[in-house]
Design a protein around this nucleic acid. Sequence first.
DNA 1: AACCACAGGATTGGATATCAATCAATGAGA
DNA 2: TCTCATTGATTGATATCCAATCCTGTGGTT
Lengths: 258, 258
Amino acid sequence: MSSRSQAIADILTRAIIDHRLVPGCKLGERELSEIFHVSRIVVRQALIRLADDGLAQIERNRGAFVARPSMQEAMEIYDALTLVEQGVAAQLSERLGPAGWAELRQHVERQRQAVAAGNDALADVLGQEFHTVFVRLSRNKVMQEIHAQLVRRTTLLRSLITADFDYCNLLDDHSRIVDLLEKGRLKPAMDLIDAHHRSVVRGYIMDRQVFPELTPRDALEPYLDGKTGEAPKSLSQTQIKTGEKDEPGMHRHVHASR
Amino acid sequence: MSSRSQAIADILTRAIIDHRLVPGCKLGERELSEIFHVSRIVVRQALIRLADDGLAQIERNRGAFVARPSMQEAMEIYDALTLVEQGVAAQLSERLGPAGWAELRQHVERQRQAVAAGNDALADVLGQEFHTVFVRLSRNKVMQEIHAQLVRRTTLLRSLITADFDYCNLLDDHSRIVDLLEKGRLKPAMDLIDAHHRSVVRGYIMDRQVFPELTPRDALEPYLDGKTGEAPKSLSQTQIKTGEKDEPGMHRHVHASR
DNA sequence: AACCACAGGATTGGATATCAATCAATGAGA
DNA sequence: TCTCATTGATTGATATCCAATCCTGTGGTT
């Protein structure tokens, strides 16, 4: 239904947020066109979409690369995300009906069960999804799209950073946010959202390659073939350990919750 | 410096927010490629950028059209804009230094002088710019871009709607918002931002063609030639009166302030 | 050895021609 | 008048070609 360049942009986006394509990775037109069996022009259109989304940067006559956000930009992205979610929280605290609160609680409960079952990969996905569900309940598609874009960019950031905090402290944040909001305690809820994001950002150390660099051909291989758009195996199971020794304060786990 | 498709996307964006290209207007690839003397491919890339920005919509095998947002979407855009500006207001009320407040006051003063001088066109531009300056002071480029996109879309909306309120009531809103924020009275300021936008939306009646439809060739003519990107004459001076009689409650002035 | 200049290769940005797929309008026939 | 098929126009996409630019490697110079 959609154009082919959109489909390719979607695949590239997926590969980037799956950390299979890491920041700085060259996205050559010829190489991608051979991988996807399309013409260079279609690839170029896809890259334009990625660049507009902030996931790639195009340098004239040099080509496209997976975006490598600066520390400054990383902070700005998290600030923007906080701003959006705080605003949505304020709207929901006034307008959300019982069914909405129930949906949020149900989502938190599913995540809790995943954590209890030790399924970190599922917990991680649910943890991310919570924010998306949260914004969806505002019933504002424009806001949803803005938020989704910001989330994609934060996911990209995680290819570049090393979190040295204990993520277990964040596990209950979602639940507490829902509690506070439903009770109408907006200000504490907004502060908690801020703290939720700040605690993720605080220990960030950039200029490290957290994920191993794959060639585009290897990185994109799982998404091809089927054409069904089926989810490739979660990276948390196929993740490759890099050769370098772990440094102090460097953890290799994925975040179970943001 | 930038690619040609970006330059063309910029021109089309400009033409749309100047209301020279009205919603629903067909943006044929062949026609545009002849107008700009570029190939269809460059035009297509420009149209992709516009579509990503929400200013155009591309229908498969049918082509691109200037976006015609629904009433629902119009409300969502204004809600999102309110959310963003309220969030920025909250940040500024904590973090903005004296120089920042001075810049805002200076801007308001310039607009006041323009109104006093009867220069409605300049006042309109300054009124729009206020919101941009406001967000720029947050020093968050990511947020700035999101906000700028929302502003562009609200500008597009004004091609579709007829305001039947007395815009004089809004003239002092900017000034009062600055006053309240500088005094640390955040809540009233946020309420005023909300009211500011709501008062614009309230009387909106869609499904009217406020601006006359021009062919793309006529609409884009002022932007070509010079290649200097110079501002074409403001529409408020070249605006053409449509043949149809004014209906009750239908004003043809441009907004002096949002 | 270090440094600079230049040539060649590789890649991107873009133009043109061409073809297939799809939509819309037109017109023939019941 | 209504229905259906054909035709024309437009888009989506490809292949090929060319110019501009960047990177690199070589070679000469200090």
